[in-house]
Write a protein that binds this DNA or RNA. Sequence first.
DNA 1: TCTGGGGTCCTAGGACCC
DNA 2: TCTGGGGTCCTAGGACCC
Length: 404
Amino acid sequence: MRERQILHVDVNNAFLSWTAIERLKEGETLDIREIPAVIGGNEEMRSGIVLAKSMKAKSCGVVTGETLYQARKKCNNLQVYPSNYKIYKKYSNDLYNLLLEYTDKIERFSIDECFLDMTEYLAGSTLLYKAKEINKRVEKELGFTVNVGVAHNKLLAKMASDFEKPNKVHTLYENEIPQKMWNLPISELFMLGRKTVPKLYNIGIKSIGDLAKFDEKILIKKFGKHGKLMWEYANGIDNSEVQYEPEEPKSIGNSITLPTDIFGLDKIDEIVLALTEQVTYRLRKYDLLANVVSVQLRTKDFKDYSHQRKLISPTSSTREIYDVAREITHEMYKGDFIRLIGVRTDDLCDKNQIQLSLFDNSNSKKQERIDKSIDFLKEKYGYSKITRGTVMNVENIVKPKRKE
DNA sequence: TCTGGGGTCCTAGGACCC
DNA sequence: TCTGGGGTCCTAGGACCC
């Protein structure tokens, strides 16, 4: 097999940089990239965590995912700005379109990361040269910066893009693994998270090099498939392809952390219905049907539990999915104070690939017409305006309005 | 702990069938 | 049936990612 030529492009402090340039475009003079700043959620809504940070905030020790309260303690003049996914999507598309000039084999790994398979697109040039060109062009033409990782597989390209930031290009070829990767702590390895790292520490594995040299069989015995994966990653082995064809989603769900804990099935049911409406709206928008419905509850002391149920036949009907969601919610609710509620649909299939016979019962048809007309109104008047029955959209639950 | 919201994949146990 | 083992499906929970 020919050696593959892979790049990983990673936007530096994406949400913060994109917010910064959007503000500058609107006439603001302050570039929030130059001050201690973060993009954060809303503390009053109990979603006050750091989503992105400026370099100055990072140098105070602020980390992504911590609470704004914690971040402020580290950095007393920290400025907090809200997120705006609409503009992030726009900048993400700008980046994607620029990268399309280099290859059509691009995997959009997340809103701010892409893998590029350049194997057939070097045309006499080198991979490193292309990486440097991309790095320069993004800064010049789009106004934000990226790190580019250069390697012969996705894992190594991703590890490379995570080296020194911002606005840098790094290679991580096989012969560079011992020198550039093995001295890093295991927490830096992709797919080693907060639960596994302490377990590895306990058996004396502290660096990626320690892991690479450890007995693979013992890791498999201890961690199963995950053990095999982590050993391969530590040794720079990854044969996965760049998934440039966007895949159909396998699940669609929505969840919300409530501004205050709630108690009792009546209140929980209202939220479950509101979430079901959001979820089924998205299902119908993409012409998908769900085979499995699940509901997640998180208690005030952060215990999660969930139930799921397979449906008799696939559906996107709000009524049908809500009936099941409500049923399993009632089954599992133990009378706790609830902090978070989630509704998710799984095992999705394409509506157009399901035989029409599933729809020829007239009740389903009627239900489908109701859903469709509600969807139409939602599109026309904006999402939050239209609800079914007893004022059931999440916005109203979050900010209760006086009854008219 | 003043701890988001969107996902994917894996595991383990029980039911059921052959 | 006092029975064994394998395969598949379903469910609950957990780990990880950005």
